[in-house]
Computed example of a mutant assay.
Amino acid sequence: MVATFSAQQAPSQAPGPSWLSSRPARRSGAQARKNSKALELIQGSLSSRKVERQSPWLAGFHRAADGTLVGLGICMLALSGLTLHWQNQWGHQYQQLENSQSLEQRMQESAAVLEQHHLGVVKRPGQLVPTNSENLVYLQAPQSDPKKQATALLSAIQLAPIPPGY
């Protein structure tokens, strides 16, 4: 919309909203009430009910977008919490791994020190050989009947009368 003004018709107010004009506007009580009613109208025009009546597909799309954003926000918070939990668990597991590695190193050192001590104490050092995997002998556990063990255990129990007072 284009408005043309002649030199004789000076507009009382520039076209467009009042907040764009360069002059400060005086506000009287009636004008302030009029502006507050205008704000109420603006707020009412942006209500969801009116938008839903005018274009229901847009209101439905808006609801779907809001639901999607809320769902994604909740998922993001849940995944952030799980990530922090898993990082904490990983840190504890890594610390336990480092502790077990240091304990293994200390155990190997103490076994070496004991071995050297025993080799030095023995009068005939040729009898003892350093321990390695080739010198180990693996034996299988003896096969035993669990019924025989149970009867042997029960026969070992002696039932005697309990003296009074105990």
Rank of each mutant, 00 (worst) to 15 (best):
L20C: 09
A112E: 11
V122C: 10
Q31S: 15
Y94P: 06
L139G: 04
G81L: 04
Q101D: 02
E134M: 10
T83P: 00
L139Q: 12
G16C: 03
S45P: 00
L58S: 06
P146V: 00
L82K: 03
L77K: 12
Y94G: 12
G120M: 11
R124D: 15
A10M: 14
P130V: 05
L82C: 04
P161D: 07
S6G: 13
Q149S: 12
S28M: 04
Q9C: 09
H117T: 01
E134Y: 07
H117A: 08
W90E: 02
K123V: 13
S100W: 03
E115H: 00
L69R: 14
Q43M: 03
S47V: 00
G81Q: 04
V113E: 08
T151P: 02
L39K: 13
Q43G: 01
E52Q: 03
L153T: 14
H117S: 05
E40G: 05
Q31V: 15
M107F: 07
V70Y: 15
H117C: 05
Q101G: 01
I157T: 08
L103W: 02
L20F: 02
L139W: 07
W86L: 12
S21K: 09
G126D: 15
L58G: 00
N99E: 05
Q13M: 09
A7D: 06
P130I: 02
S22V: 01
F61Y: 15
Q108I: 03
S48L: 11
P142C: 00
L128V: 14
A150P: 00
A156Y: 06
R26P: 14
P24M: 03
G29D: 12
E109A: 15
Y166E: 09
Q149H: 13
R124Y: 15
G73D: 06
M107H: 04
E115N: 03
V113I: 13
A7H: 09
H92Y: 05
Q108P: 02
E98K: 11
L69K: 14
Q96G: 01
A14G: 09
I42R: 12
W19T: 04
G71K: 08
R124L: 11
R23A: 06
K37W: 03
V122G: 03
G67F: 13
G73T: 04
V70K: 14
S55I: 13
L84K: 06
S21V: 02
N132I: 04
Q31L: 12
W57F: 05
Q89P: 00
L119T: 09
M76F: 10
H117D: 07
S80L: 01
L97G: 05
L82Q: 02
V70A: 15
L69I: 14
V129A: 08
Q143P: 00
I42P: 00
S144R: 15
I42M: 11
C75A: 14
W90A: 13
K148W: 08
Q43A: 10
Q89G: 01
P146C: 01
G44K: 04
A10I: 13
A111D: 01
V129G: 08
G29N: 08
R33W: 13
G67E: 15
L58M: 10
E109C: 09
S18A: 10
G16S: 01
H117V: 02
A65S: 12
G126Q: 12
A7Q: 08
G44D: 01
Q127Y: 00
P56T: 02
V129K: 12
G60D: 13
S6Y: 02
